[in-house]
Simulated assay, not measured.
Amino acid sequence: MEDYFAAHETARWILVGLLVAGTAWTTLRLLVIRGVDVAETPGAYAVNRESDAAHLAMSTAMLLMLTTSVAHSLWTAVFLVFAVACIGPLTVHLIRCRRTGPTRNIDGIAASGYHLVAAAAMAYSTLGHRGHGAHHMEGTAAQSLPIPFIGYLMTALFALDALVVVVLATTMPAPATRNPLHSHRIGVFPHFAMDVAMASMLAAALLG
């Protein structure tokens, strides 16, 4: 991945810009909106504090991965911890689903499941690297990702998901509120930024 972005600095900084914008917007929502969930669309795209927190953690980690020089083994551990952490909320939503039915819990199940897959995919993207961080280190050899089919599948999945987010955001009815922090059209932007960054970083890991 570092070799690819070393040769394509423009792509790196476009992703950095997307992730900075996504983390800034998510942080603003978490600080300003307290106890308010916006669920104008269902499933993994529901905007709520749980999803905001997951987007903030994942996007911040990817942002640091793109801009700092840290051993990839550390990032593997970080994303695996994120994946394990997602199991807790997912389990809670599944238990609630059994007790109260899927109607109230489907959003939480979809979102937690998505974040679990995203964290696992990013952990996978670090497995094909030796050396450190965002820049290639002389004397270190790149290593191919294990089972590349998984990488291509995940890249396609996140690219498709980003497209779905754009379609939903542009076709859904105009929000009833004038407060942009409550608008789902803008609220899904961190999800979109994460999708684009993950698809691009996975592709870079496969190509680099």
Rank of each mutant, 00 (worst) to 15 (best):
M172R: 07
E138R: 11
T76C: 03
S183A: 15
F192P: 09
A111G: 12
A197S: 11
V84E: 05
G139W: 04
W75E: 04
Y152F: 14
F189D: 00
L127K: 00
H115D: 06
A110M: 06
F149D: 04
H191Q: 13
T91F: 05
F82T: 04
T91M: 12
S183Q: 07
A111V: 04
C97N: 13
R185G: 10
A121K: 01
T103M: 11
A176D: 13
M172F: 01
A111T: 12
L127S: 03
C97F: 05
A159H: 04
A134Q: 03
L163G: 13
H136V: 07
S73T: 12
A169I: 00
A162T: 09
A156K: 05
P102W: 14
S69L: 01
A199V: 08
I150G: 03
A197C: 10
R104F: 08
I109T: 11
A162I: 09
R104Y: 09
A134S: 09
E138S: 10
V188K: 00
V84K: 05
G131I: 06
Y124L: 02
A159I: 00
V92A: 14
V84H: 09
L66T: 07
F79I: 02
R185F: 02
A141M: 15
G88T: 14
R99D: 09
H93L: 00
H184K: 03
L157K: 07
R178Y: 05
S200N: 12
M201V: 13
S73C: 04
S144L: 11
T177L: 04
H136L: 12
V117C: 00
V92K: 14
T100Q: 11
M122R: 06
V196P: 06
A142R: 13
A118Q: 12
I95F: 05
L181I: 07
L157F: 15
L157V: 11
V164C: 13
F189P: 00
V188M: 02
A159S: 06
A119N: 08
S69Y: 00
A169T: 03
A83Y: 01
A197M: 05
A118L: 10
A204V: 09
W75I: 07
I87P: 00
P173F: 01
L163W: 12
T155S: 12
R130Q: 15
T91K: 09
R99A: 12
G108H: 09
T126V: 05
V70N: 01
C86D: 09
G139C: 03
V166M: 07
V78G: 00
G187E: 00
I186T: 14
